[in-house]
Design a protein around this nucleic acid. Structure first.
Length: 596
RNA sequence: GGUCCGGUAGCUCAGUUGGAUAGAGCAUCAGCCUUCUAAGCUGAGGGUCAUUGGUUCGAAUCCAAUCCGGAUCACCA
């Protein structure tokens, strides 16, 4: 049990004994004691003062004395300042905690609790390569999935691939017009980049045609509709929907190129999925529920045949769910897919990692699903994240300011290599080891940078800051880990590994105390990260742990400790710190190097 | 215009179920490598927590209004 909850229940019991009143957890707070005061944890008494009709000082004194007397193994001293009761934890409690956890490497991992959760993330279009925004999405999704798993849930990672629609046809038309049969193989290009180029070529050509038409006297709207390349594209979309063989074949060939490219990127960044949904398979799914809803009068039809739902009672307006020509729209497919997910996988919860620009869409989806009487409406959860902006403003594909994912990864890894060389560390490694190290450092820096901010918030991507290896970065944390490994290796060489049997530690130094107390908070931290679905909580924790350990590291020697007892204690602290860093970083998708 | 999100140090961000003198990192300045990896450590300066009012023992945190920024309100996905 975590210290805060232990103290909470001790205080509740004590108050019951002392004053005969039953308090609950919500009645008063347990905080960590601020560094400028003596103590480890603080009970805030103000809230109790009123009901107990006592002065804060007296209440603090009485409660403090009672706790000290009746929980002597837990508390060693107390002091009262204003309405704050500061308590100090006994050394025996701290060291036994260390021993217990040292032998149990799970750090509060919870047993399976049988919640089945699906996390959907990534969700790319197949007409262009992944970019920085996708990376934030993927890292958040993967991390949240792993965090939920670590907290005892059964998690299914999925992606929905948007593999159909007008945007894919654009790339296809441009390829037909300009490629002369070129392929990714023939041009030595990654498939997603190859296809993306034709998407760009489409837009160039389209723009030119529109301009020409405008010069011939057409309005902008007319020109955009009548541009020959656009007409061709729309015809292709119709052909695709009617299943015309040559169109379908080109479509699957080009998508195949893109998937190969995506897979390479996913593999490199360590992202994985248990299942992939393809929109081309699911886009018709919602229609049946629309017909059903019509029968039940939940939906209504307008004169032109289009089908709508009235959400005005929810503060929204009327939403279209089926076009006049009977084809489905975005929301229609999502209704179908939502149901499919819950029914095929028997989910307790379905999480969608989608940008916050779709908050409205997801709200509408939930309401429609609810109105259609599907029981899982409340278990749909939109994990929304803010857009990634550049220091120069927003990313816009038309203006060429999109940061390509593969380019960015290459650059991060290259900077990691350069930096390592400059520090003169290269000579300690083989070529193979260096290659692995650079990936670990470069990808680690990038993931940490994108995950250290609360997902819900918009964030600004600063290229210089992102490739920094100092301060609040993945490298900083990795470095602390590598230094510990170095100590452990030296200790092992002298056959002096930590032995936790029958040791009595006394006189903990302030930094040793702080570290043990901080390590103890890890299990709370991952629980919080899970309930908030927020990896940044772990990033912050793991950084602060590394920082604290670094202070300890320069202040106290482990191998040349004052005596054997101290050495064992510090080895145990070091091992636990390393294990928790490794585990915490793992939950962020960041690997640790044994040396760096 | 309606709805939603945000505004904390020069910059990027923590801190918000109300608690003690608001914290990090970067940047700036000053120190620390014969001693477990200096990708590190120690210290200094830097704040009207957007503004105003309210709630109370106590407000960055809750409420109201205002200002500023963003998203969204498609027979696009």
């Amino acid at each position: 049990m975590a210290f805060t909850t232990t103290i909470q229940s001790a205080a509740i019991e004590s108050l019951q004994e002392l004053y005969g009143l039953q308090f609950s957890e919500k009645d008063f707070q347990i905080n960590e004691t601020k560094p400028e005061f003596t103590g480890d944890y603080t009970i805030v008494l103000f809230a109790l003062v009123k009901t107990l009709k006592k002065s804060p000082e007296n209440l603090g004194k009485e409660l403090g004395e009672y706790l000290l007397k009746n929980y002597a193994d837990l508390f060693s001293s107390f002091n009262v300042i204003k309405g704050f009761l500061n308590l100090q934890i006994t050394e025996s409690e701290l060291t036994s905690l260390l021993e217990k956890n040292y032998n149990n490497k799970l750090f509060g991992k919870k047993p399976a609790n049988n919640k089945k959760v699906m996390v959907e993330y990534s969700s790319p279009n197949t007409n262009k390569p992944l970019h920085l925004g996708h990376l934030r999405n993927i890292f958040i999704g993967w991390s949240v999935a792993e965090i939920l798993k670590f907290n005892g849930n059964e998690v299914i990672k999925t992606a929905i691939v948007n593999d159909r629609g007008i945007h894919i046809c654009k790339s296809m038309i441009a390829w037909q017009m300009f490629a002369n049969g070129a392929t990714p193989e023939s041009t030595q290009q990654k498939g997603d980049h190859f296809v993306g180029e034709y998407y760009v070529k489409f837009n160039d050509k389209y723009k030119k045609e529109v301009e020409e038409l405008i010069q011939q006297g057409k309005t902008k709207e007319e020109a955009e509709k009548e541009a020959p390349i656009m007409k061709k594209t729309q015809q292709m979309l119709l052909d695709w929907e009617q299943g015309k063989p040559d169109v379908k074949e080109l479509w699957s060939t080009m998508n195949g190129w893109v998937y190969k490219g995506f897979d390479a990127t996913y593999h490199r960044i360590g992202s994985d999925f248990d299942h992939t949904f393809y929109e081309s398979n699911t886009y018709l799914l919602g229609k049946d529920f629309v017909y059903e809803g019509l029968k039940k009068n939940i939906l209504f039809k307008k004169e032109d045949g289009s089908v709508w739902i009235d959400l005005t009672d929810k503060g929204l307006d009327e939403k279209l769910v089926l076009r006049g020509d009977g084809t489905s729209v975005y929301i229609t497919q999502d209704i179908g897919l939502a149901k499919l997910k819950f029914e095929d996988y028997h989910l307790d919860k379905s999480i969608y990692v989608i940008g916050d620009e779709q908050l409205y869409h997801m709200k509408v989806l939930k309401e429609i699903v609810r109105k259609l009487g599907m029981p899982f409406a409340d278990n749909i959860f939109h994990l929304s994240y803010g857009m990634v902006e550049l220091t120069t403003g927003k990313m816009k594909s038309r203006e060429g300011t999109v940061v390509d994912a593969d380019d960015l990864i290459d650059e991060m890894v290259a900077v990691a290599a350069k930096h390592t060389e400059e520090l003169g560390k290269v000579k300690d490694f083989t070529v193979e080891e260096l290659k692995v190290l650079y990936e670990t450092l470069g990808l680690g820096a990038m993931k940490f940078y994108l995950l250290r901010v609360d997902p819900k918030k918009r964030m600004i991507f600063n290229p210089d800051e992102s490739i920094d290896f100092h301060g609040f970065t993945g490298s900083f944390v990795q470095y602390a880990y590598a230094r510990i490994q170095s100590i452990l290796k030296k200790a092992d060489d002298g056959k002096e590994s930590a032995n936790s049997e029958h040791l009595t530690f006394s006189k903990l130094l302030p930094l040793e105390r702080q570290l043990i107390l901080f390590l103890e908070k890890y299990s709370n931290t991952i629980e919080e990260a899970a309930s908030e679905m927020n990896p940044s909580i772990i990033a912050n924790y793991v950084f602060n742990l590394a920082k604290l350990y670094n202070s300890f590291y320069v202040e106290h020697s482990v191998i040349n400790a004052e005596n054997e007892e101290k050495k064992q204690l510090r080895l145990m602290i070091s091992v636990m710190t390393a294990n928790i860093i490794k585990n915490g970083l793992y939950l962020l998708g960041v690997k640790v190097p044994e040396r760096m």
